[in-house]
Design a protein around this nucleic acid. Structure first.
Length: 563
RNA sequence: CGCGGGGUAGAGCAGUCCGGUAGCUUGUCAGGCUCAUAACCUGAAGGUCGUGAGGUUCAAAUCCCACCCCCGCAACCA
């Protein structure tokens, strides 16, 4: 059996993550990791903060900290928030780690030896007041086409024309506002993507029908337009220094070392227990590892083209991505979430308002898979109230109470199975097959619709069999129905656990025996008799609380969601 | 003529690849039930599938053509 390597795109360390980051890659990858573990698969789930680059340097300067301290501070905040949402990383590392540096140098040296690295002199904007080179988007000025005064050096937001920093009238630094800019010539290293194009195109072709359309078509687009050589170094201080003569004072570009970070972070994980773990087992073992990557759509080119090309160029037999899930964007009140404007719902606020599982369920059930989707508190409340509270929560509550009132707090005896139960088994066997097939294919919204149907089938069963009536005339029959219904709670816990780990645990904890999460691998006819008669259970508060209309109004005001 | 995604009941979406009486959730209305959290179960109404009295076809949401609208991306923004 192949083992599963799962990676989530690495969130940039600068600033705090919001719901868009959560649904873009972190949460779906966690759900998939938990799902595979529940099926007994061997899983290594890796993530971490992406730390190098200009935004970190600028952010640190703003907060008057060293870049090292700044990154550490925000890395820790990320960790704290992801714990709050129960993300089950096997390791959450950092791209600035010494292990990542080792891997970056190893890969760079191999690329160099194989002739995939070239030197090239480029022109860069240098700001003498900031004492640094400026990336194109850090240069601001008046657009020569439309006169917009806040055009950036890569593109004018107003007229959308693509610009070069030298096109701008009255250019100035975004960081300091200084206009003391000059164009300097500077030497950089470039990865020769064109040399790898043919090989890459053949490989991408084999991914047709396996990757989602959005990923395949973006990769094809780049290949169709022809790959260009790509700079992999920058004139910055914060990063891994370039180990080559004449490149002193320069560092590798963040987009070169960030994806390599998946490997570097795996090595961080392995180095904790070197006697039993090795990163080679996962990253230099393509025949035995299935690698699934999760990312937002903006990241797709880097995961389908540049990173695979980088690995291929080394000549080593790296584990390549097999499955790839690219997500569209989650919008808020019709617009984008924004870190810089603090627009939207950030994770620290989200967790204060509602339990993590509310967010996890809503986000997965409404994941932006085929198109950008929108977050709104009204929709959120509706889904939580209906699906979680009414359908699932109420089912558990009615079954527990009815049983308690008639048989006490223990599972009653299962006697004669009837056609009602057989019909239920059959319905569930079909739905569970469907559910697992959607999960295997990472069709998250469809999987959630099916999970909901599975919950509904329990209410349906109770409505058809009417145990509250039957108990007056036929105690054995009522006991059988409630025994089955209580077993459904255990089923629901195990099926829902990848999405709602905390709630699932609460559900299993109702029964006073220790149980681990595991996906039902047998048919319902035997699975739904798994909890034995006589097993004690607890009564608890309802698992979910409704979100009332006045609360929705309040939330919309606090988070500035326009109607 | 830059590229990609999307435009299907009030809202949110599936169906489009491989043409064949338009489906799901929510909301609305009616009925059932009264074990449970004003919950649950069943049924009904609601759509000329962005536009084109466009093309192909016995048949188009689905294939072809033209156009319109929304969102995202455009390699130095992660």
């Amino acid at each position: 059996m192949k083992k599963h390597l799962i990676t989530s795109a690495l969130p940039y360390v600068n600033g705090l993550p919001h719901l868009g980051h959560l649904i873009g890659c972190l949460l779906p990858s966690d759900v998939f990791a938990r799902y595979l573990r529940s099926r007994g698969e061997e899983v290594l789930y890796i993530c971490g903060t992406d730390e190098h680059g200009t935004p970190s340097e600028v952010g640190a300067a703003k907060e008057n900290m060293s870049v090292e301290d700044y990154c550490k501070k925000y890395h820790d905040l990320h960790v704290q928030m992801y714990q709050g949402f129960n993300l089950s990383f096997d390791y959450f590392g950092r791209t600035s780690s010494q292990q990542n540096e080792e891997i970056v140098y190893r890969i760079y040296n191999e690329l160099e030896q194989n002739g995939y690295i070239a030197e090239k002199v480029t022109k860069q904007v240098y700001s003498s007041d900031d004492k640094r080179y400026l990336p194109d988007s850090y240069v601001m000025g008046t657009c020569p086409h439309c006169g917009y005064e806040k055009a950036k050096g890569d593109q004018c937001e107003n007229c959308t024309k693509v610009l070069d920093p030298t096109d701008l009238i009255q250019p100035r630094s975004v960081i300091s506002g200084s206009d003391k800019l000059e164009i300097r010539e500077t030497k950089h290293l470039f990865l020769q993507l064109p040399k790898l194009e043919k090989e890459l195109a053949d490989w991408v072709e084999t991914r047709k029908g396996i990757w989602p359309d959005i990923a395949y078509s973006i990769a094809k687009k780049w290949l169709k337009e022809g790959l260009q050589e790509r700079g992999i170094t920058r004139d910055l201080k914060w990063g891994f220094s370039v180990p080559k003569e004449g490149f002193e004072g320069k560092v590798f570009y963040v987009w070169f070392d960030a994806p390599i970070g998946y490997i570097g972070i795996t090595k961080q994980w392995a180095d904790e227990r070197p006697s039993e773990r090795s990163f080679e087992d996962w990253w230099l073992n393509p025949d035995n590892v299935v690698h699934t990557e999760f990312m937002g759509k903006d990241n797709i080119p880097f995961h389908t083209i540049t990173f695979p090309a980088t690995l291929r160029g080394t000549g080593e037999n790296w584990t390549q991505v097999s499955m790839l899930k690219g997500m569209n964007y989650l919008n808020f009140a019709g617009g984008k979430f924004s870190k810089s404007l603090h627009r939207g719902i950030f994770l620290d606020d989200a967790i204060k308002e509602f339990p993590a599982d509310y967010w996890r369920y809503w986000l997965i059930a409404n994941a932006p898979e085929s198109d950008d989707s929108n977050f709104g508190f009204e929709q959120f409340a509706m889904t939580i109230n209906k699906d979680l509270n009414d359908v699932l929560g109420n089912f558990i509550n009615r079954v527990l109470k009815m049983t308690t009132n008639n048989f006490g707090q223990q599972i009653p005896v299962l006697s004669q199975i009837t056609s009602e139960e057989e019909e239920l088994y059959e319905t569930l066997d079909t739905l569970i097959r469907q559910y697992s097939s959607y999960m295997d294919n990472l069709d998250l919204r469809k999987a959630m619709a099916t999970l909901r149907e599975i919950w509904v089938s329990g209410n349906n069963y109770i409505a058809r069999t009417e145990p509250w009536k039957v108990v007056k005339t036929d105690t054995d029959r009522a006991a059988t129905i409630l025994n089955t219904a209580l077993n459904l709670i255990r089923l629901y816990a195990n099926l829902s656990a990848p999405i709602m780990p905390q709630t699932a645990k609460q559900m299993l904890d109702l029964f006073e025996i220790s149980q681990d999460i595991s996906f039902p691998d047998s048919r319902m006819s035997s699975y739904l008799t798994g909890l034995k008669a006589g097993t004690a259970f607890k009564l608890s508060e309802p698992l979910f609380k409704k979100i009332m209309p006045d609360r929705v109004t309040e939330l919309k005001a606090i988070y500035k969601e326009e109607a």
